[in-house]
Amino acid sequence: IRCIGVSNRDFVEGMSGGTWVDVVLEHGGCVTVMAQDKPTVDIELVTTTVSNMAEVRSYCYEASISDMASDSRCPTQGEAYLDKQSDTQYVCKRTLVDRGWGNGCGLFGKGSLVTCAKFTCSKKMTGKSIQPENLEYRIMLSVHGSQHSGMIVNDTGYETDENRAKVEVTPNSPRAEATLGGFGSLGLDCEPRTGLDFSDLYYLTMNNKHWLVHKEWFHDIPLPWHAGADTGTPHWNNKEALVEFKDAHAKRQTVVVLGSQEGAVHTALAGALEAEMDGAKGKLFSGHLKCRLKMDKLRLKGVSYSLCTAAFTFTKVPAETLHGTVTVEVQYAGTDGPCKIPVQMAVDMQTLTPVGRLITANPVITESTENSKMMLELDPPFGDSYIVIGVGDKKITHHWHRSGSTIGKAFEATVRGAKRMAVLGDTAWDFGSVGGVFNSLGKGIHQIFGAAFKSLFGGMSWFSQILIGTLLVWLGLNTKNGSISLTCLALGGVMIFLSTAVSA
């Protein structure tokens, strides 16, 4: 259960009878995928790494000078000259100064003066180019299975845990398959586009800190620079940016070097996208990844198990997540596992009318040892309800109150669905055939309105939902006002479609 501690969480529900669903994975976010007769899966884009970055340009932001020398000439005696002028490691300046009897010249006039100092770069920052084909995306998957609280967001041991898996995709191999043991396998067909235009970005490294910066900004930095990788004795261009020549006297000129420019660069980098280094690879934390999940090989585990009949206890007080759902960790005293956990939410304890829904599909106890633990997640209705676990006299209950409203949740879900469709863009549509167009249209309606429909009408039977949709269509056909007619027709059509397409 990876997503319960992530604030940016998206719930995606598969269409009834569908074998695939489109998701948008982004750094700092987590996606929970639910479908009829399929286990619930949490998917998170953990890291995006980039390798084989080529150094484009380096800037010196802290330097020192040494070996200063000057040469001067009297008027009419030609130009002052130093051998160091031809050495690229030196920074030199030529000027004219007033000369006369007082400073060793027989004539009054302008004399030539040249001053040089050896330039040494102490600290530099480097910009590297990123090729999209060198990106690698690491995705962690977790099935809502027989897990306890100690396994949440624990990325170790996934090789031997059938509840978890790690997959890596690249532009050259965008397809992967996550093996989930008894739950089958989940196929991923990803489109490795981060949403960032790397043709316009460089990877900047300064003092063990890293950013993504725009090329134009990078090339306009007014500091000494050299092109390409460091060859040991780089040729620094624009050395004068960190060196200041003071007022010249008759035979000498003082040279000083400016202080470190790291603070000024940090100020200019305010708002830039931060990154990290992992050995020789860069780690990015921006952008998104679009994936199509193929769920035809994914299956529920323990459908044929019998119900657990022994007593359950709450190991922890049920807690609310950031998303309005409830996490419950229970301990089973029996030894008759594997068995299914009898769990439901009810409005009252007399009729036990089921409300809400299970995020953890078909929760089971897989071990036959005593005191096995299991964590599950529920989506309670707004208002008061009861969490009921167990059967008969051994069942345990917990009162729950959820604040908020169904309308607010439906609106929030619609906005999130619209954002998801905007990110998917043209990849969500198939114009290759008439059937493809209608299929894409259905998927689009489901992406945007599916979660809201589930919130508003999830407790009704599909037949009642179709009746309401048919009534809206009838009202649309018999209303003389054009805008009201079109609105009723659209709402009725969407409702009829979703009542037959969205899983219960």
Rank of each mutant, 00 (worst) to 15 (best):
T360A: 11
G436L: 00
L258K: 04
E44A: 08
F119M: 10
S499G: 03
S372Q: 03
L269I: 12
N172M: 09
P222H: 10
L242N: 05
K454L: 04
L477H: 07
T160G: 00
L269C: 11
K301W: 11
A117N: 05
D197R: 03
S260A: 04
L376G: 01
P192A: 15
P75N: 08
L223E: 10
E26T: 01
G282A: 15
F183M: 12
A229E: 09
G476P: 03
A250Y: 08
G100W: 09
G195Q: 06
V243W: 08
G109R: 01
G408A: 08
L376F: 04
L376A: 01
G109T: 01
R138M: 05
V343K: 04
S385Y: 06
D426A: 05
K246I: 06
V46W: 10
M151V: 14
E13N: 08
I4F: 09
A319Y: 05
H219K: 02
F198K: 06
V21C: 05
S64E: 05
T179G: 01
N154R: 06
S142H: 02
E370D: 15
N439W: 02
K239A: 05
G195V: 00
T321E: 07
A35D: 05
S149N: 00
T126L: 12
C116V: 08
S260N: 15
V388G: 01
A63C: 09
V97W: 08
G181K: 04
G14A: 10
F438E: 01
V364A: 06
S58R: 00
S66R: 13
W217P: 03
S66C: 04
T406R: 01
I43D: 05
R175S: 07
F457A: 12
L186Q: 05
V265K: 13
W225Y: 15
P338K: 06
G195D: 14
L180Y: 09
D161Q: 04
S499M: 10
A250P: 11
L242A: 02
A310L: 00
S70D: 07
E191A: 08
I387H: 03
R299K: 12
A264E: 08
M277K: 13
F449P: 04
D197H: 09
C30H: 08
G444M: 13
K215W: 11
K110V: 04
G271I: 10
T194D: 00
K297E: 11
A361D: 02
K166P: 13
L477C: 14
S142D: 04
R252N: 04
H235G: 14
G271A: 05
I484G: 11
G109S: 07
T170K: 10
V33S: 02
N371A: 02
R57F: 07
R138I: 14
L378P: 06
S58G: 14
V12N: 06
A241T: 14
L204E: 09
R138D: 03
Y81Q: 07
W236D: 05
G28S: 15
S185R: 03
F312G: 04
S485P: 09
C339Q: 07
V257T: 11
W400Y: 12
G29R: 00
G334I: 06
S306H: 15
G157F: 04
E162P: 14
L284Q: 07
L113A: 00
S185V: 09
K110C: 07
I130F: 12
D10P: 00
S485A: 14
V6T: 00
R2M: 09
S149K: 00
R99K: 10
G482A: 15
K166Y: 00
V330H: 12
N163Y: 12
A227T: 15
A501K: 13
G109D: 13
K409I: 00
G104Q: 07
P132M: 07
G337H: 13
Y137R: 01
E44Q: 11
V12H: 05
V423I: 15
P318K: 07
D296Y: 01
T406E: 04
N8A: 05
F183Y: 11
G78I: 04
C30K: 08
H235M: 15
Q131T: 14
F183Q: 11
G187C: 02
T115D: 07
I359A: 10
L45C: 09
E162D: 13
D87I: 04
V256A: 04
T470E: 00
M53Q: 03
